[in-house]
Design a binder for these strands. Structure first.
Lengths: 233, 233
DNA sequence: CCGTTTAGTGTACGTCTGTGCACCGATATG
DNA sequence: CATATCGGTGCACAGACGTACACTAAACGG
């Protein structure tokens, strides 16, 4: 049963816009993506859910799946793109507000981040899981996204006093550490059952301390001593 | 076709020893565990392999599986125990040798760790993956193991000068950061294709720097400034 | 020695899976 | 307005899955 919305041939998006068919197609495509996201949440991972389940959840017959994706692998990649796209927006805002005074900024932006994680829990859960999940291509896509994000943080840091004179290697090393500390916080928080807000606060407090410690170390960091000899083996 | 090894009724393990049956059983039990480990490696995760696959790989008929485990979930838990047991030994040695001079110890013990990871790649790969895998019980088991390990590191650190006077909270916060930095290194290295030793060295060097930075921060850490106010929300 | 126990076998089932194919009907297009 | 396009449907199939059951034979304990 499908409602006929409008019989008039109105092309609300004049020249380059989507046709009604394209619009419909995009709609079920996103229904499939959403279904996969939801199922992979309760099912544990992408690898443990089936094409048929996804189609069923999306309200579509199994074979219709192929009009959008070749297989579950391809859907996985699309899902990474989709999730990361909507997340970048959100992260960019957080970054923007974190460029103030150092010490107080750590606390406030970590808290903002935690709020983002809780608000977009399905997305973060998906990423943390598929980062080490079964599909190599999906893993790489997530890794690329994280790398990209580390790069952005490097850019941000370079603007601040202690980092402006630092070699790129060291800067990236620090950004990498920061990002993974935060991702780790995210994973820990998402592991909690819905009721445990107290525990979430403990975890957040710990992460804040960890970041403070990292920035404390960074302020004392002397690049030249950081040289590491090659492996003797 | 099975060889009859010995017709004599010899009880080589006199009183408390295993009977021949128990011995046989334990043997196929470990064949099942090994099969699951191998398959979960190439298949991507425990969740994406089947009971039948495991049985096949172990060289037994599917229904024989039930003589050892109720289902794949239970095997997963057993596998965590098994893998962690054999790993603790190895880690304990690494810990023991890391209690020397601080700065040089970081470098050498990280390198030792990397060697351990490469030598026990199947085990580490399994743990990194199932840490955020599909089975909640398995996830918790891995988390418990990591927590246990953090505790051990706390004990080690307490022996050294800058940490002996530090509150337990802060000490645990630092140990947690160290452990996860190292786990992260492990995950990154295992993601590499077999041929990329150069890249492995880069990753190791970065992790060494990160740990140096952490310990640098730790040496400057003032506990009283670390207080974090409760969430306003 | 003889009866009991039990790890592993073989067969059999119902269910679910991915996917090929022919088809429909709404939409787009010349 | 006639025609071509194409997202979604329905059916069919072979194969893999988990698991129940009856069974065999080797090792056990009295």
């Amino acid at each position: 049963m499908r409602l006929r919305v409008n019989t008039r041939t109105e092309s609300q998006t004049p020249g380059r816009g989507l046709t009604r068919r394209d619009e419909r197609k995009l709609q079920t495509r996103q229904a499939l993506l959403r279904a996969a996201l939801d199922l992979s949440r309760q099912g544990g991972s992408l690898a443990s859910i089936s094409l048929r389940e996804v189609a069923r959840e999306a309200g579509v017959v199994p074979t219709a799946f192929y009009r959008h994706f070749r297989d579950m692998d391809e859907l996985g990649l699309a899902l990474v793109d989709d999730v990361c796209l909507s997340l970048r927006q959100v992260i960019r805002e957080a970054r923007a507000s974190a460029l103030g005074a150092r010490d107080v900024a750590i606390q406030s932006s970590v808290r903002a981040f935690v709020q983002y994680v809780l608000a977009h829990d399905r997305a973060f859960e998906f990423l943390t899981r598929e980062r080490v999940g079964a599909h190599p291509a999906v893993r790489q896509a997530v890794a690329r996204e994280i790398h990209y994000f580390v790069g952005e943080l490097v850019g941000d840091l370079r603007a601040a006093p202690p980092f402006s004179t630092m070699p790129s290697d060291d800067l990236e090393m620090i950004a990498h550490l920061v990002v993974h500390t935060v991702l780790n916080l995210s994973a820990d928080i998402l592991e909690l059952k819905p009721g445990q807000r107290v525990r979430a606060h403990e975890l957040t407090a710990r992460a804040i301390k960890q970041l403070r410690l990292i920035f404390l170390g960074a302020s004392q960091w002397r690049p030249e001593r950081g040289a590491v000899e090659p492996l003797p083996v």
